[in-house]
Each structure stands twice: as structure tokens, then as C-alpha cells.
Simulated assay, not measured.
Amino acid sequence: MKNVRGPGIFLAQFVGDQAPFNRLDTICQWMAEIGYKGVQIPTWEPRLMDLKLAAESKTYADELRGTVEAAGLQITELSTHLQGQLVALSPVYNQLFDAFAPAALKGDLKGKQAWAKEQLLLAAKASANLGLQAHATFSGALMWHTVYPWPQRPAGLVEQGFQALAARWLPILDAFDAAGVDLCYELHPGEDLHDGVTFERFLDEVKGHVRANILYDPSHFLLQCMDYVQFIDFYHERIKMFHVKDAEFRLRASRASTAAIRTG
């Protein structure tokens, strides 16, 4: 535990149009005042950073880091959760995820995927420029709509799905390897990588890529009725990042049951 530092906080849920949440310097000052030591920055949020500039300009990256450090904080990681979702986007979800990409790409499945890939490649360079060691993302969901095995899946569908998922991510994983940064997938319901089995399938397809790692968040495992403690025993070597928040699952058959499943 000697290497654990913090606490840190993911800024995505707090950014807004009102001060102090509309600028990187002021939101960092606010977080420092309430006791945080680090921030994870959402790269899609222009009120906080310019991802392309951070990838192309070491000077800008140094200024960005300096803004955070002036508040007494550190940048822990960058995040591409929204862009990662679009790297592997099923046509089933094309319209649902229009808001995750520029408005000009509305309805453009291939356009969103190409833009997302470029965003991840920029994130690898930006992370290196900032001196970071890990990066947070989602895997996307080519197959999530088939997670429940009814109607019955055609033979080979899952295997083809993981091959397609790996083909999209391999060039990105290689870019993160070149940058010296671990790419950490948040295992999350709604993503093709949502538990140990799916992560292992993916790992097999990317030939055990050294940069394919895990953002561990036990709340997502609790709501899948998984043993989130034993998961650490199995996968600790691949866990390079973690999120912590409350979750509660209470099993009961009533009209109120949906209200009893929540995550903080």
C-alpha cells in the first residue's frame, strides 16, 4: 500500500457552466479545498483541456500540469470514456451515442469510430507529454445487446465479435505502448468488457498485450452479483487503476425493486 496516494477524483461528474466548475484552475482549487490530492481529467471536456493541443505541444501539456499543481493537486490520469465507447460501436447503439461525438458526425457510424480512434491516439501522446503512466477508457459495445442468450446467438457470433473488438483496439494499444502508458478499461455493464470472462477473451485476442489493463470499480461488479474481492486475487497484475463509489443491491420482487438498484 506504500504506493497508494490520494484521494483523487474524476472531474467528469462535476464540470458545469457555473463557477467554480467551468474552468480547470477553479475546479481544482475547489477540489483541493475539500481535501482531494489528485484529479482524473475527462479529455472530451473543452472547459478543462484541449486534447489535441496536449498531444501536439509539450509546452501546453506543461502549462496544463502547472495549472493543476498550482492548486496543490496532481493529474492522476486522463480519461477517454466517451471516445472509447465509440471505438467499438454497434449499429444498434449508433443513434444513442450521437451525443458522445461532434455534432457533424450525427448518425455517421463509421465517422464516429474513426474520430474516436484518432482521439485515443491523441490521448496516448497527451498522456506521455504529461508524464502519466495510465489512461482510463471504455471498450465500447459491439456485442452487449447479445449478453443475454435469448434469442439464441448464431454459432461463432461471440468469437467474431471479440476478434472485431481486438482488431479495433490493437493499433491503439500499440500506440499506448509506444507512449509508455497503460490503457485501462473500466469493466462496466453496457461494455463488451464487463467482467473477468470478457476481459480474458479480449486479452486472448490481443495476444496478452502488455498495455491491455483494468480500471477496477467494485460497484459495477456488485450490481452484477460478482465477488469483487476475489476478482482482485485473479486479476491484480492487470489492475492499474481503480474507481471507488457506493453501490447497493437489494433483491426483492416488488414494484419498488428498481429503486433498490442504484450506484453512486
Rank of each mutant, 00 (worst) to 15 (best):
A54L: 14
S57C: 08
R65D: 00
G66K: 13
E69L: 10
A71E: 10
G72L: 05
I75F: 09
I75P: 00
I75E: 00
I75M: 10
L78S: 09
T80Q: 11
T80M: 01
L82D: 07
G84C: 07
Q85N: 13
Q85P: 00
L86D: 02
V92I: 11
Y93H: 12
Y93L: 11
Y93K: 05
D98C: 08
A99C: 07
A101N: 05
P102E: 01
A103L: 08
A103M: 11
A104I: 09
A104S: 12
L105R: 02
K106C: 01
K112A: 00
A114L: 05
A114C: 01
W115N: 02
L120Q: 15
L120V: 06
L121G: 05
K125R: 15
A126D: 11
A126M: 09
S127L: 12
A128G: 06
N129V: 15
N129L: 05
A134V: 13
H135M: 14
A136K: 01
T137F: 06
F138I: 00
S139F: 05
A141C: 06
W144F: 14
H145K: 07
T146A: 04
V147I: 12
Y148R: 05
A155C: 00
L157F: 14
L157V: 12
L157S: 11
E159N: 02
Q160H: 13
A167I: 06
L170V: 15
L170F: 02
I172S: 10
I172A: 08
I172W: 04
D174V: 09
A175Y: 07
L183H: 03
L183F: 14
P189G: 11
P189V: 05
E191M: 15
E191Y: 00
